[in-house]
C-alpha cells in the first residue's frame, strides 16, 4: 500500500485526487444552502413576502413565538425589516467611510511614503486586518460608547427620545465607524498589494509626459487596479454584513429602525443587524421551532447576500477587464 503511494503519480491520478478535493467545498456550499433553506422555509411560507416588510420590534415578535412544540401559523408571524434596515444602514455607512480612507491610505503607502515608512506600515496594516473583531467590540462598548454618551449626545436629545428609545451612546453611527475601522485594513492590504503590482513603466511613462504623481496615480494606476478595488470592496462588504459580535456589542442591540429623516440624531439611535440578531437570542428561545426557523431565515438572507455580492462584483469587473493586459 505504502509502496503504491510512493511510486511517482501519474497526472491522471493526481488530477482525480485534486479534483475530488476541489469538489468538496462545492458540495459543502450546496449542502449548506440547501439545509438552511429547508430549515428557514416555514417562516417564509407563513409570512410570504411581507416577511421582509416593517412591523414593529423584532425582539418582541421573537419573544411571542415561544409557545409549544407545534407552533400555529400565527406564531410564525415575523416582520424582519428593522433587522434588514439596520444591517444595510450600518454596512452602507461603514463602506462609505472605509472606501475613500482605504484608497487614500493605499496611495500614500505605495506611491508617496518613504521606504522606511512603507516597510513599517504594510505589516501594521496586515496586523490590524487580523485583529479579532471582538476586541473592536469591547473597546467600542467600553470606551467609545461612554465617550459618545458623555460628549456628543445632549441632554435634550436624550429627553426628546426618552419615549421612543433610550440613547446610551451605543448606536448606528458608532457601529458604522468601528466597522469601518475594522474593514479598512483589509481593503488597504488588498488595494495596496494591487497598487504595488502596477508596472513601473506606467508610472515612468506618465511622469515623462509631465504629469504630477498624484494625477498619474489617479488616472493610470487606480484605473488599472479597478477590478482589485471592486474585489476588496466586496470582501470588506461581506465581512461587514456578517459581523455579529462587534455589532451586537456596539450597536445598542435593539431591533429598531432609526429614521434618517430625523437628521444626524438618527445616527445615535440603536439598531441591530441580521448577524447580531442570530447571536443575541438566548438558549430558551432556540427551543421554539418558530424562533429556530426565523433565525435560519436570517442566516439564509446573509448567505444570499454573500452570493449576491460575489455575483455583483463579477458583473462590475466584467467591463473593466476590457482595457487590461490579456490573460
Amino acid at each position: 500500500m505504502l509502496d503504491w503511494l510512493r511510486r511517482p503519480w501519474s497526472d491522471r491520478r493526481a488530477e482525480r485526487l485534486l479534483g475530488a478535493a476541489a469538489l468538496l467545498p462545492c458540495i459543502g456550499v450546496a449542502a449548506m444552502i440547501a439545509f438552511v433553506a429547508v430549515q428557514a422555509w416555514p417562516t417564509f411560507a407563513h409570512n410570504g413576502l411581507s416577511w421582509l416588510g416593517p412591523g414593529g420590534n423584532v425582539d418582541t415578535q421573537l419573544g411571542r413565538m415561544v409557545t409549544e412544540p407545534h407552533p400555529t401559523a400565527a406564531d410564525y408571524h415575523l416582520r424582519a425589516w428593522p433587522l434588514l434596515y439596520g444591517t444595510l444602514l450600518i454596512t452602507g455607512i461603514a463602506l462609505i467611510l472605509a472606501l475613500p480612507t482605504a484608497l487614500l491610505s493605499s496611495i500614500f503607502i505605495v506611491e508617496f511614503a518613504p521606504k522606511a515608512v512603507r516597510r513599517v506600515m504594510i505589516p501594521v496594516v496586515r496586523l490590524l486586518a487580523a485583529v479579532p473583531s471582538v476586541l473592536y467590540g469591547l473597546l467600542g462598548a467600553l470606551v467609545l460608547a461612554p465617550f459618545v454618551h458623555d460628549n456628543i449626545i445632549s441632554a435634550s436629545e436624550i429627553a426628546s427620545h426618552a419615549r421612543k428609545v433610550q440613547l446610551t451612546g451605543e448606536g448606528v453611527g458608532l457601529t458604522a465607524v468601528v466597522l469601518a475601522l475594522m474593514i479598512t485594513p483589509i481593503m488597504v492590504a488588498l488595494i495596496s498589494d494591487a497598487l504595488s503590482g502596477v508596472p513601473n513603466s506606467w508610472r515612468e511613462g506618465a511622469a515623462a509626459l509631465g504629469v504630477h504623481k498624484l494625477r498619474a496615480t489617479l488616472a493610470v494606476s487606480l484605473r488599472a487596479i479597478r477590478p482589485a478595488i471592486v474585489a476588496a470592496t466586496a470582501l470588506a462588504c461581506a465581512r461587514a454584513l456578517g459581523e455579529a459580535v462587534m455589532v451586537e456589542l456596539v450597536s445598542g442591540g435593539r431591533a429598531y429602525a432609526p429614521n434618517l429623516a430625523e437628521g444626524p440624531v438618527a445616527l445615535l439611535e440603536p439598531a441591530r443587524s441580521l448577524a447580531s440578531a442570530i447571536i443575541s437570542n438566548n438558549e430558551e428561545l432556540f427551543g421554539a421551532p418558530a424562533v429556530k426557523s426565523s433565525l435560519y431565515a436570517f442566516a439564509l438572507l446573509l448567505l444570499f447576500s454573500a452570493v449576491a455580492l460575489s455575483v455583483a462584483a463579477y458583473l462590475i469587473k466584467l467591463p473593466l477587464r476590457k482595457y487590461q493586459v490579456k490573460g
Binding site: 508596472p199 513603466s201 506606467w202 511613462g205 506618465a206 509626459l209 504629469v211 493610470v220 484605473r223 482595457y323
Partner: peptide, 26 residues
C-alpha cells in the same frame, strides 16, 4: 522634452485616451 521608452508602455485605456492623456492632464 517628451520621452519614449525601451519597452512600449501604453496605459491600460483606449487608443484615444492614451494619446489624449497628456493633453487632458496638462
Amino acid at each position: 522634452v517628451a520621452m519614449v521608452f525601451q519597452q512600449p508602455n501604453p496605459f491600460p485605456m483606449s487608443i484615444f485616451d492614451n494619446v489624449a492623456f497628456a493633453l487632458r492632464e496638462q
